[in-house]
């Protein structure tokens, strides 16, 4: 029973406090609980709920800074995923900044901030599940692109259904990337900083998806034919930055 309380206390501490402080608090509580073992009910009564116990002990300024970082990183991740779902966001990407590639700005900002914020704290072993999820995400991204560009044109669909079907496939890919990115971000805070690699790869997949949707939704009739190489190099650049960033985040 005590383990349950301590597990919740550990989760709360790792979410709310910087890693060093969380480790210190958990060591202190372990010592206090070893001196005077108690049941779960006694712990709740005498120490309070784990989240409350951590809130009382945590430095609120550091927690606010983390929330700000979390909000910025989430925004970098979610904006590309929402680009076709909300008209205002589509306008941000396609017309608001004609000389700036907003998706590249978001990729760079998210990558730089995530690498800078989650600093090394002693030895962080590579989580077993992380390479599996990274591989699955890469496979999903490759699979969706293969299906849209190789399989979909051969399906017996009316010509006017091809575009919307491809759009839905990319929207679902963007949604999956957002969910895995948020999971990676949370796990990087709570468990191990190496989980930031999942955030970085998800961000790159989300941004790549957004870039493809922007090309598909472009009203420039020449864009897809004459300027194809420009789009191709942009997609290649995003993929290269994403994979390189994932590699750095794994270190």
């Amino acid at each position: 029973m005590k383990q349950d309380y301590f597990t919740r206390l550990a989760l709360a501490a790792r979410w709310r406090m910087p890693p060093g402080e969380a480790k210190e608090l958990l060591a202190d509580y372990r010592e206090i609980l070893e001196e005077n073992p108690r049941t779960e009910e006694e712990l709740l009564r005498e120490l309070g709920k784990p989240w409350t116990a951590v809130r009382l002990a945590a430095d609120s300024g550091a927690y606010r800074r983390w929330l700000a970082v979390f909000a910025v990183l989430s925004l970098c991740l979610l904006l590309p995923a929402l680009c076709t779902l909300l008209p205002g966001v589509w306008w941000l990407f396609s017309g608001a900044f004609p000389h700036i590639s907003l998706e590249i700005v978001l990729l760079t900002a998210g990558l730089a901030l995530s690498l800078a914020y989650f600093q090394r704290q002693g030895r962080d072993p590579l989580p077993v599940l992380l390479p599996v999820l990274l591989g699955l995400l890469i496979a999903l991204c490759a699979g969706v692109n293969w299906w849209v560009w190789r399989i979909l044109p051969g399906l017996p669909l009316a010509a006017d259904r091809l575009g919307p079907t491809a759009k839905i496939a990319y929207e679902l890919l963007g949604l999956a990337a957002s969910l895995s990115g948020i999971f990676g971000l949370t796990a990087a805070r709570v468990y191990n900083r190496r989980w930031r690699a999942l955030y970085v790869l998800s961000l790159a997949v989300g941004v790549l998806t957004c870039a493809v949707l922007l090309m598909l939704g472009s009203m420039d009739m020449e864009a897809g034919v004459i300027q194809w190489d420009r789009y191709f190099y942009r997609f290649l650049g995003i993929a290269a930055i994403g994979l390189a960033g994932t590699g750095v985040a794994l270190c």
């Binding site: 608090l25 409350t52 116990a53 009382l56």
Partner: peptide, 11 residues
């Protein structure tokens, strides 16, 4: 007074 509050003051 909860022990967690006393511990928070100590910190």
């Amino acid at each position: 007074t909860k022990e967690s509050a006393v511990y928070a003051l100590l910190r």
